[in-house]
């Protein structure tokens, strides 16, 4: 008998929370980005777990698409970061707040 799904899901939730808290707390844009990746991985883990639990390949397909989207997101996101930080001194997300109301 293999590991029950609730263990995986709990682990997924823990990873997700760590990522979320990190995203909210850290101010280095790159690290924030990595935290987003963490959250995506947590979600992927949950998907794979459900795929196994429900014996449905759909969950794995979704993970596949999430990987593609994550790759694209990282490419564009890092492009934006590079474009912004090429011309400013600070390295933190708080330096960009032009849209302050």
């Amino acid at each position: 008998m293999s590991i029950p799904a609730s263990y995986y899901l709990t682990l997924s939730a823990v990873l997700f929370s760590i990522g979320g808290i990190g995203l909210l707390v850290r101010r280095n844009v790159l690290v924030m980005f990595m935290c987003v990746e963490l959250m995506l991985n947590a979600a992927n883990l949950a998907f794979v777990t459900f795929a196994r639990e429900l014996n449905d390949v759909g969950g794995q397909v979704v993970v596949f698409f999430v990987l593609v989207v994550a790759a694209a997101e990282v490419v564009v996101g890092l492009g934006i970061i590079v474009a912004i930080f090429r011309r400013r001194v600070g390295a933190t997300a708080d330096d960009v707040h032009v849209l302050k109301g």
Partner: peptide, 25 residues
């Protein structure tokens, strides 16, 4: 996470995880 994928019979995704995430991203 990749190991956990293997553990749950998602070998292909595990490979992609290592190659794309760890290798590229």
């Amino acid at each position: 996470v990749a190991v956990l994928f293997v553990e749950q019979d998602a070998q292909f995704l595990a490979a992609v995880q290592v190659i794309v995430y760890a290798g590229a991203i």
